[in-house]
């Protein structure tokens, strides 16, 4: 098992958001998590990656045999957990190149690999840039500095490609993208599917799943997974929307 979440409860500012979530992900699998706004989709990504203020109240998450909640944010990243942000933040004056080289080498160091030289890294970075259709000039620009929404999302995927994680959590990587950009993001993700790497694709819309075909689709509502199925479940959601869940979630609550 790559990731095993058992009965996860988490609150933000005293309000319970995740209310007993269970999820098992095997190596190589792609799991889509769909659900209405406020269901706890982004919270799940933050709790798993260890963001401050998003600690688990109870429950466990085993990540490749380690207890995820015992690890610091950077230790989870070093263990191969990657989060593609919904709203990537800018770091002015720090070039993408510099930022990614430091990150890649920090992770390599933990794995006992030699750091990449500047030229080795540049070669990889150029390839990754091409894969997500960003001009090479983006390597020299400040991290997300002045990037458009679509460029920021593609930049996240470029980072994912360079860091070669075990588990990728994509937090609404499709939001705000036009069809062309969506295609680019999906291609970037698909190029990283190698039968070992696992993905959690968080999305509000079915659209992204036309391009990234999931093995499983889960519907998250009111802090729990209320329904799981294969890719056809996403299609169903597209037709019926989430309105039917409202009632069901309320029922579950009662």
């Amino acid at each position: 098992m790559m990731l095993s979440i058992k009965d996860l409860h988490a609150s933000i500012d005293g309000k319970e958001i995740l209310k007993g979530l269970n999820l098992d992900i095997k190596p190589g699998e792609v799991h889509a998590i769909m659900g209405p706004n406020g269901a706890g989709k982004s919270t799940l990504g933050y709790v798993l990656s260890g963001r401050d203020g998003y600690e688990a109240d109870s429950g466990t998450a085993q990540f490749n045999g380690a207890d995820l909640f015992d690890l610091e944010v950077e230790e989870r990243a070093q263990a191969g957990l990657f989060l593609a942000f919904q709203y990537p933040v800018e770091i002015p004056g720090v070039s993408n190149m510099e930022f990614m080289k430091e990150s890649v080498n920090a992770i390599r160091e933990k794995r006992g690999d030699d750091p990449l030289s500047a030229s080795e890294f540049l070669k990889k970075a150029k390839e990754a840039c091409k894969q997500v259709d960003l001009p090479l000039a983006f390597l020299k620009r400040g991290v997300n500095e002045g990037f458009s929404g679509g460029e920021k999302k593609r930049n996240e995927i470029m980072q994912m490609i360079l860091l070669e994680p075990n588990l990728c959590i994509l937090d609404e990587s499709d939001s705000g993208l036009d069809v062309d950009a969506l295609q680019v993001v999906a291609n970037g993700v698909n190029s990283q599917r190698d039968g070992k790497r696992s993905f959690i694709v968080v999305t509000h819309y079915q659209r992204l799943l036309d391009y990234i075909e999931p093995d499983y689709v889960h519907i998250l509502a009111d802090g729990k997974i209320v329904k799981s199925g294969d890719a056809s479940l996403a299609k169903e959601v597209e037709k019926t929307g989430y309105a039917w869940l409202g009632a069901k979630a309320e029922e579950a609550d009662a």
Binding site: D52, E72, E74, V89, E90, I107
Partner: peptide, 13 residues
């Protein structure tokens, strides 16, 4: 905190 979280999520202490 957002900047710091981004950096740490990418493996930097």
């Amino acid at each position: 905190d957002d900047q710091l979280f981004l950096c740490r999520q990418r493996g930097l202490d």
